[in-house]
């Protein structure tokens, strides 16, 4: 890897989160995309990081509040009379 390419990789890594979240300026995005075209390693880092975030955002199992936890919570807060039935 040339010294110059390496600098670009570091630059991409520093901006990776904001690039994924779509929070970079157009100029910076263009610069990054130009580097990505020629750098397979950075493309892999981008793709796998994006996928990682995507997988976390997919709800894992049933993560709503279990009924008994909800009941104990309302009881502890002395809100038994107000427990809404869902």
């Amino acid at each position: 890897m040339s010294e110059n390419a390496h600098t670009h990789c570091k630059h991409l890594l520093g901006n990776l989160s904001e690039y994924i979240d779509g929070e970079l300026t157009e100029d910076l995005c263009r610069e990054i995309e130009k580097h990505l075209e020629g750098c397979e390693n950075c493309r892999i880092v981008l793709n796998t990081t994006r996928r990682t975030i995507d997988l976390v955002q997919t709800p894992i199992g049933a993560e709503s509040l279990p009924a008994e936890v909800r009941e104990r919570l309302f009881k502890r807060l002395q809100l038994d009379d107000y427990i809404p039935h869902s």
């Binding site: 990789c9 570091k10 793709n47 796998t48």
Partner: peptide, 26 residues
């Protein structure tokens, strides 16, 4: 301080959904 450079550079992002969302993967 600078970020630690990524070490594993294998692209698994295109693996099928059912594999990525299998219980073991979760």
């Amino acid at each position: 301080s600078e970020e630690t450079p990524p070490e594993i550079l294998i692209d698994w992002s295109a693996l099928p959904e059912d594999e990525l969302l299998a219980n073991e993967s979760k």
